[in-house]
Amino acid sequence: MKVKVLVGREEREVEVKEGASVAEVLEALGINREEVIVKLGGTIVTEEEPLEEGSRIELIRVISGG
């Protein structure tokens, strides 16, 4: 299935297996879960949250470095 991932202003589409969780999407993108907070439909969710075909998640980077 395909899910959409919004990072900053950039939107990407990722192919993951049916019923994949947020964690699996992050893994596919090579993004460390320690470094992002994930929103699904405007609500903050855990990395265990199951996704569906066409789900759109938003990533907020938590690293400020300064």
């Binding site: 320690e34 470094e35 907070i37 903050i44 907020i60 938590v62 400020s64 470095g65």
Partner: peptide, 29 residues
């Protein structure tokens, strides 16, 4: 943990910046 601080700031409506310092990328840190 940093992620918990960020989550707290978001959930309690603290008007913090989440911008990254332009010098942050190239360091040993």
């Amino acid at each position: 943990p940093e992620k918990e601080v960020a989550l707290y700031a978001l959930l309690s409506g603290i008007p913090a910046s989440f911008e990254e310092c332009p010098y942050a990328g190239d360091s040993f840190r």
